[in-house]
Amino acid sequence: METAIAQTKTKMWAGGRSPFNVSYGKLMMWYFLISDSFTFGAFLISYGSIRFSLNNWVDHNYVFNKFPFTEANLPLAFVSLMTFILIMSSVTMVLAVHEGHKMNQKGVEKWLALTILGGLAFLSCQAWEWTHLITHQHEVLVDGVLQHWGTTVSHNPWGPEVMYKGHMVATPGPVAFGGYFFGITGFHGFHVFSGVVINSIMLIKTKKGDFSKRGHYEMVEKAGLYWHFVDLVWVFVFLCFYLI
């Protein structure tokens, strides 16, 4: 009888241990992330659907072609910098998790601090980009009258160009562009912001020695999963708004 129990206990799903060999918290973080990915997926696919239903959209190479401190035409340059910052901060995060496995408190502190710095740098870049889009005005021909519009959720000065008094002027483009762009990058930016807050809490708890007292750095691991997810979403936002 006893040997029978011992045998069943070694089976994966017989109870008494995690069949997934993972803690409850980490598993639930994964399930939260998959649900969150469906939220982002719904946003991005709705954007794609609207874009496919329209005869014209904006040309991203003209909308996103500016870099701070210069007036040069640099398509894709600034957003590449943002992508690089986010990938880099993902690397520092995974190194923080690695130091956590080794129970090296100083290492966790160093890499977490760098991750937070990367997150803040990304948020600053996004703030600049939004400010530039909203405040930088463009000539646009509205009902035969030349006006100057910034890019907002209700104004899109990036429509098809027409001849007007001997030079080409843009007409209003689909309003949906501003809504989708600010909505999706805003929702992503909010995730980055909450990621920075979570990482800051992790850093404070690490500095206080909470995790070394507990004997493991699993909290940092869970925060890391969230942070990588933010990076993962950016890969797709980058694809949908800036590349295709």
Partner: peptide
């Protein structure tokens, strides 16, 4: 072309 009024005389402003 949407909002395109080629012959419309432009407003003075």
């Amino acid at each position: 072309q949407q909002f395109h009024h080629p012959s419309a005389e432009p407003a003075e402003k």
